[in-house]
Design a protein around this nucleic acid. Structure first.
Lengths: 133, 133
DNA sequence: ACAGTAACTTACTTCAAGGTGGGTACTTAC
DNA sequence: GTAAGTACCCACCTTGAAGTAAGTTACTGT
């Protein structure tokens, strides 16, 4: 048979497929499409932000959720954290090249949703109207 | 002053902005970026599905969540539901023109995440390695 | 001496997401 | 006759996501 050995892992893992429940790409997708993940990425596309600036920009995030979201995005390699060793602390958040790619997508999506809001409202009225008995 | 009356609503509503906590576009965005919403839309982009086909296609969805997700997407005007009055019941789900537009975006996003999985893993190793004490 | 500040962390609590298992109504296949 | 498929709905319960509020650090300004 002369099959070459797997170069990276002994246990050969299946190709990524979000339709499989166990596929790790689902978790990554959930990080970027999470409630605050989308908004943080989209915000960082426009410019880099400090923690509290970002908190003001993204309406309604608690400190806890912002920190949590940023950590997940940093760990996945989408966000770069630059903590200056000064007092009071100053931490700048920006997108990595890879983060920039996702951010563009979620930014576009956000804008698209905003632009189609009226159509959604109309659809809802039709839907709700049809099932009132 | 001679200000013209608002043609649609008395209470003039601010333009859609996902960065505002109360903006209704956030809810719509959450429907399409929800855990199952993304996967359902992406699946329906390839072809229309019956309920149980879709359940088989999207690994790990419960009946309850699939029904709930489809209802939200239908109400927002992204998914079209076609129930044939036959026995056993047959219901076909497909994308509306508007749904097709979002679905393309989340499909692209899903595929992008799958393709960048290795980079994410690498970033995680770097991140985790840096903070082990 | 004491308040203020930035970027968190931690503990506690609340609420929604989600899973499980039941039922339904009818038909076809075994 | 009974099991399985179909597309659900409903009630119950668990888990996890998220909010609230307080504590932490180390320095600066008054």
């Amino acid at each position: 048979m002369n099959v070459r050995e797997q170069p990276v892992s002994e246990t050969l893992m299946p190709p990524p497929d979000v339709n499989r429940a166990e596929c790790p790409s689902r978790l990554v997708l959930e990080h970027v499409t999470s409630r605050w993940g989308v908004l943080v990425l989209a915000a960082l596309l426009e410019r880099s932000y400090r923690f509290s600036e970002l908190r003001r920009q993204v309406g309604g995030v608690s400190e806890k959720m912002l920190a949590q979201t940023l950590q997940a995005l940093e760990r996945d390699g989408f966000v770069h954290r630059d903590a200056k060793p000064v007092i009071p602390p100053r931490v700048d958040y920006s997108l990595t090249p890879m983060g920039h790619e996702v951010a563009e997508q979620v930014w576009t999506l956000s804008r698209w949703v905003e632009s189609r809001l009226d159509d959604v409202f109309e659809a809802r009225e039709t839907y709700d109207g049809a099932r009132e008995s």
